[in-house]
Design a protein around this nucleic acid. Structure first.
Lengths: 110, 110
DNA sequence: CAGAATCCATACTGATACTG
DNA sequence: CAGTATCAGTATGGATTCTG
C-alpha cells in the first residue's frame, strides 16, 4: 500500500485502517505487547499471511512497534506505539457511538 | 453487505466505513444536503455505480437520509442524519490526529 | 437528473506447504 | 516460533450502455 496523501486526512487514516483485521489488531494490542502466536489466537480465522502483512503495514505507519528478541526459538513482540494508542482511543470512541446508535435504533424498532 | 454484529463495535463501524468512498462521502455532506450530481463533482473518479451503492449502504445504516422531490426532472437530495454527523465528527477527530502524527513524523525525519 | 444492468479489472483475503 | 512463497477464490471497484 502506497503512502498516498490526499487533501482529506480522514481518507488517509481510513485507507490505513481499512483492512478486515487492522482495527481489530490494534484492539487486541491495547493490554500490552503480544507475540505473533498470541495474536493468531486472538483473531480466529486470520491467516499467517494476513497477520504478517497487516502487522508490517501497521508498523510502517507507526502504529505498532515490532521487537525481536534474539533467542532460540525466536521471540517477537508487537506493541502499540503512543500514536497507535491515540488512534485506538478514537476508534473506541467511534465504536461506542456506533453501539449506542444501534441500541437506540433497536429500541425504536420495538 | 450483511448487517453482521460482532463482539467488537469497532469492527462493526469499520466494516461499514471501509469502502474507498464512504468516509469521503460523509465528509462532503457536512455542509448541508447535496444532489447526486453534486457528489459526483465532489468525488472525482467515483463511478455512478459506486456512488449509488455507497449512498444506499450509508442510508441503510442510518448515516445518510435520502429525499426524493417528485418533480420533472427528478431531484434527489442526500443529507447527513444526526447519527451521521456524530460519526463524521469522530472521523474528523481521527483525521486530525493522523495529520498531527504525520507532521510530527515528518519533522523528526528532517 | 438520477439511476439500473451488465461485464470486466484488480485488490484483498485465504489455504496450503515450506523454512531458519 | 515466526514467519515466506505460491496459488487461488472472493470482494470491491470501474467502464459502458440504457432508461423513466
Amino acid at each position: 500500500m502506497k503512502d498516498v496523501v490526499t487533501a482529506c486526512p480522514v481518507e488517509d487514516v481510513m485507507r490505513v485502517l481499512r483492512g478486515r483485521w487492522r482495527s481489530l489488531l490494534l484492539y487486541y494490542l491495547v493490554n500490552g505487547p503480544k507475540r505473533f502466536s498470541d495474536l493468531q489466537r486472538d483473531l480466529p480465522g486470520i491467516s499467517q499471511r494476513m497477520l504478517t502483512l497487516d502487522l508490517r503495514e501497521l508498523e510502517a505507519e507507526g502504529l505498532v512497534a515490532r521487537t525481536v528478541y534474539p533467542e532460540a526459538p525466536p521471540r517477537v513482540e508487537y506493541a502499540l506505539t503512543d500514536d497507535g494508542e491515540r488512534i485506538l482511543g478514537l476508534l473506541n470512541a467511534l465504536g461506542d457511538h456506533w453501539a449506542d446508535m444501534r441500541a437506540r435504533r433497536k429500541a425504536m424498532a420495538a
